[in-house]
Every structure is written in C-alpha cells, then in structure tokens.
Simulated assay, not measured.
Amino acid sequence: MEPCSRVRVAKCQMLATSLFVLLLGSAMAATAALSYFGPHFTVIGPVSADRTTYEALHHWAFSAGIALAALLTLGAMLSAAATVRGAGGLMAAAFLSFALVFCALVQAAFWRAHSPTQMEDAVLDAYDRAYERALRSASGSGRQELVAIQDTFLCCGKSSPLGLLGGLEADLCQGEEAARQDCLRGIQSFLRVHGNIVSTLIGLGLAFTVYAMLLSSFIWFTIRLGRYPVSQRARDHPPQEPRVYRCIREGSPSPRPSKADAPGGRLSPSRRSGQLLLLQDTHPPTHGSGEATVSTRM
C-alpha cells in the first residue's frame, strides 16, 4: 500500500473512531447522570448508616463520569477537526485528551477489580438499617423510608433463613407487596446490572482510547513530515502556473512564434497578453538584399 493510501485509510479510521468515541462519551454522561439523579440511588442516601462516606462516594462517581465524558467528547471533536483540516496542533491536543482519559479509565478499572462490591455493600447496609428502624420504631417515619425503598426497587422485606417471619415482619409485606421478590436479591440484581454496564463502558473506553492514540500519533507524524495529502479537489484541480515556469521546470524550451504570427520579429500586440515576448534572432543582410537596398535609395 502506498503512503498516500495509508494516510487516507488512517483518516477514514480516525473519523469513524471519533464518532464512536463521541457516542461513548454520551453514554458515560448518561450513566453518570442516572447514577446521581436516579431514584434507586437517591432513595438510599437519607437512610445510609455512614451518610458522609456514601455521599462522598456518590459524588465522586458522578464527577468522574462527567469528567471522562467531557474529555472523550473534546478528544473526538479535536481529532475530527484535525483530520479534516490537517492541523498538527489540534491532533496533539486530541492525543493529550485521549491519554488523560486512558489514565483515568485505568484507575477506574483498577478500582472495579479491587473493590467490585463496595457500592453494593453500602446500599445493602443502608437497606438493613432502614429495615431494622422500621421494625423497632413506633413512629411512621422509619416505615415510610422503608416503603419508599421497596417501592423503588419493586421488592418487599427480607426472607428469613428459617423461612418463618415474625408478626412485625409479616405486617410489612401485605397484599400485592407480599408477591414481590426479596429486597436483598432485588437490590443485588439491580446493582450488578448497573455494575456490568459501567464495566462495559470502561472496557470500550480503554479500547477506543488506545486505538485513537495510535491513529492520532500516526497522523500527527505524517503532518510533521509533510506527507499529509491534500484534498481530492486540490489534487484534481491543481493551481495553474505560468507557462514559462512550467517550461523551465520540465526542461523543454518555450515554443517560438512563427513568422506568420510574429511579423517583423516581434509578437503582435494582440498576442502579447498571456504569452512570453520573444525576439527572433536578427541575421546580417545578404549581399542581394544590400544591393536592393542601395538601388531603392538611389
């Protein structure tokens, strides 16, 4: 494959990768917003045992997701603009954005591998606290919090290890609510689905950022080396050069005008525009022409 063909293929791949990175950034922003403003997570905050730690973790996850989405969107826009315009500075900025996203995603992947159930444990502890408060509290505030959690996750109560429930526990799930699934299983299933989505986004982000960094570095080097091809229109319609410059560059002499076109050794005034003025070589008059001239004078 010729170098120009390689660059064209790299340009097409860079544009396609920028589009996928832009979609990935939008998906990350939507996931972060759902994790922060979604009802499944906001209902847990007020009943969390360690509310300060849970809110800090919740806020950190939202900030990290929005920052990653912003960097991915910025890198996609910069890489697309640099690919179309052939700008080395924009391509270097896009490479830097992708590198920052890669480093952040590596940290997020390490956190997911090291503490995969940290968020799940925090939510389950919050539900256990709300459940115990509803059983022990004589007021209706504790029960209202528990009912709000159960209605959000579409679950009810906890199953007893012995299969028997006390009177107060049986009163919490009556009628249609008794047919719902166990809240511990319901919360675990929801959080695992959410965690799988986050892990998938992290894996796709790592793959796309690595590929985008390779493409952006290759295109940046082609721009720096001056091998970046011009547009198709410029190749099909190159700028016109003066005729004399083309003749000199090609090494062929410029055409000399004929006697019919240039009487008297000079080009006619109507032919001077757009062409090179040429003077024919003057030859000494022959003997016959000299006698004719003397006879004419006499």
Rank of each mutant, 00 (worst) to 15 (best):
V123P: 01
P116L: 07
A138V: 03
L22G: 11
L34K: 11
A30Y: 10
R249A: 12
P255Q: 04
L23Y: 01
L19G: 04
F221R: 14
L34W: 10
P257Y: 09
V101D: 15
M77F: 11
H59D: 14
A67L: 11
L124N: 03
S258R: 09
A99T: 15
A99R: 06
A87K: 02
G157E: 00
S199V: 14
Q188I: 04
S216Q: 08
A80H: 03
I44C: 09
G25S: 11
S199Q: 11
K11V: 06
S139W: 00
T152Q: 13
S252C: 10
A138S: 12
A126L: 02
Q280A: 15
R51M: 11
F153R: 10
R233K: 07
E241N: 09
L100R: 03
A70R: 03
A81Y: 10
G157Q: 01
A93K: 14
R6N: 15
V294S: 10
A10C: 11
S258T: 12
K11H: 14
L172K: 03
G186T: 10
S254Q: 07
A134H: 02
S231Y: 00
A82N: 08
A260H: 12
E120S: 05
L135K: 08
P39G: 12
F153H: 09
R85C: 03
G288L: 05
A92Y: 10
A80I: 03
L15A: 10
A234K: 12
F41I: 11
M14E: 11
M28D: 07
G274Y: 01
L206R: 13
Q13C: 14
